[in-house]
């Protein structure tokens, strides 16, 4: 990694590492909700004879607890500074740098994600492992695939949030878009329930036509080895496609946003 990128990742990391109380409060909340979700899903599975939509008890526990941690890692509920900077006009400073703001924001967000992995991800993971016992992957290949899938999930989520931030160039106030995103991304990414409990056709539409499952369901299915290594590779491939498509969309939308700003003034 070149030095600019490394410096930006480090800056993103340090930026979030400043707020220790917020980190602690966030990890605590995620953990409390982890208990709630885990008890509910396990009781649903128990009434269904121990297996729910193909997930066994330990797989469900892993799905819940790793999901609670990954939520903070992909950070889908928190918007980037971009929209606020567009609203206040500070975005001009971003445009006056010799680097593309898209990449600056991406590298900084990756730094944030590294910090989240070390804190917000590990805390619920440990609690879940102690309190419920988690699913232990059978294949060693699962671990690197999970790491890859998580990285892709972070980038996909970043690109979605960047696109939402860019809408500020037209809307100025992005609260409406954001509320829509929080609702849809929560339901369709597998945060509230595993997408496998949905009717087949709906789950297929979500997986094929939307980036939402790439945010959480994808890495979670990889780590609980749903469908084996072949399936995991397919899931990662799908994420790669969404990563490329969404980053391209960011480029196009940004070019048009900047054109609008530069031509019409802001």
């Amino acid at each position: 990694m070149a030095r600019v990128q490394a410096a930006l990742v480090a800056a993103g990391f340090r930026r979030y590492a400043t707020y220790r109380q917020a980190t602690f409060a966030g990890a605590f909340t995620n953990t409390v909700f982890g208990f709630l979700r885990c008890y509910i899903l396990l009781s649903v599975a128990a009434t269904a004879g121990g297996v729910m939509a193909g997930y066994t008890g330990p797989q469900l526990a892993s799905y819940v607890w790793l999901g609670q941690g990954l939520l903070a890692v992909v950070n889908s509920w928190t918007m980037l500074d971009l929209a606020e900077r567009v609203r206040t006009g500070d975005v001009v400073a971003d445009l006056l740098r010799p680097v593309d703001p898209l990449w600056t924001y991406l590298w900084t967000d990756l730094g944030r994600a590294v910090y989240a992995v070390l804190t917000r991800f590990l805390a619920p993971l440990v609690v879940g492992a102690v309190a419920f016992g988690l699913y232990v992957p059978q294949s060693l290949l699962t671990y690197p695939l999970f790491a890859l899938s998580t990285l892709l999930a972070i980038v996909v989520c970043f690109a979605c949030r960047y696109l939402i931030g860019l809408t500020a160039f037209w809307l100025l106030d992005i609260r409406g878009v954001m509320m829509f995103w929080v609702f849809v991304s929560g339901a369709a990414s597998g945060l509230y329930f595993p997408l496998a409990i949905l009717p087949d056709w709906l789950a297929t539409v979500l997986w094929v036509a939307t980036p939402f499952p790439s945010l959480l369901q994808a890495p979670l299915d990889v780590i609980v080895e749903r469908g084996g290594t072949g399936h995991a590779l397919l899931v990662c491939l799908g994420q790669v496609v969404w990563t490329v498509l969404l980053l391209l969309a960011c480029r196009v939308a940004q070019a048009s946003a900047v054109r609008k700003l530069v031509v019409q003034g802001g």
Partner: peptide, 11 residues
């Protein structure tokens, strides 16, 4: 810009 900042707020 006197009324904008180019510095990283949290760092």
């Amino acid at each position: 810009f006197g009324q904008r900042s180019q510095l990283w707020w949290d760092l």
